[in-house]
């Protein structure tokens, strides 16, 4: 079949010559030294590399949790580095979901409210937020824990709730920093299963990990070394 060439796949995330320096006591540490990466819509990319290679810093800069020193970050075609704190917060609430190594759930709220909160902050109706929360907790086998305080849950359950919370507002991009770092094998399997399922439904994921079992669920693996991309490879 002939015809016009297909349009290039739209890009969800792009960094250009991203640099991040930390200064302390007159010392300057270059955590990122010119990182160019791209993530297509719906793509699942794992970032690996030795500790100190800059992988967590990369995630923090992309998610607006740390400011870059120079370079560019583009999210959904919009340049986001250099946004004001307020504008970044709006971006994040709408488009980014975050999950870290520790769950950091709000201890004074129920599990259900923890999951619904980001959806409500992003502007969806209370009814929609509740539906989404029910769906996510059901997926994670946590429906019967909806009304309890997070402190009543095991570490693995808390981490699953944190993942549900990160996905509650249907973010364009899920940023995950060692999400299974504190989990045993069984809980890791459950978290990976949910990541795979949401990815299959079109969720874009950028995940930092040192665990190859986790990384091998991704479409692509980027290796950082010394603040630079040492390898960028797709499962064929």
């Amino acid at each position: 079949m002939s015809g016009p060439a297909p349009a290039p796949a739209p890009v969800m995330l792009r960094t250009r010559k991203l640099v991040k320096e930390y200064r302390a006591d007159g010392l300057c540490v270059e955590a990122l030294r010119g990182v160019d990466i791209e993530l297509a819509f719906g793509e699942f990319v794992a970032v690996m590399g030795p500790s100190g290679s800059g992988k967590s810093t990369l995630l923090h800069v992309i998610g607006g949790l740390a400011a870059s020193t120079s370079g560019e970050v583009w999210l959904r075609g919009q340049r986001v580095d250099g946004l004001s704190k307020r504008d970044w917060a709006i971006q994040r609430r709408r488009h980014i979901g975050y999950v870290f190594q520790t769950a950091n759930l709000l201890s004074t709220m129920t599990v259900a409210d923890n999951v619904e909160l980001p959806a409500i902050l992003s502007g969806v109706s209370a009814r929609q937020a509740r539906q989404r929360r029910e769906e996510l907790l059901d997926d994670l086998g946590l429906t019967d824990k909806a009304r309890v305080a997070p402190s009543r849950l095991s570490g693995g359950e808390q981490q699953r709730v944190a993942l549900a919370r990160a996905l509650a507002h249907h973010p364009s991009l899920l940023l995950a920093d060692e999400p299974t770092g504190n989990l045993d094998s069984v809980n890791t399997r459950d978290v990976l299963r949910l990541l795979r399922r949401t990815h299959a439904e079109g969720q874009a994921i950028l995940l930092v990990t040192h665990d190859a079992r986790v990384a091998s669920n991704a479409d692509r693996v980027i290796n950082l070394y010394d603040g630079m991309v040492a390898d960028d490879w797709s499962f064929g």
Partner: peptide, 9 residues
């Protein structure tokens, strides 16, 4: 490394 990733998958 790529070979190991494939094996892991």
């Amino acid at each position: 490394r790529h070979h190991y990733y494939r094996l892991m998958r």
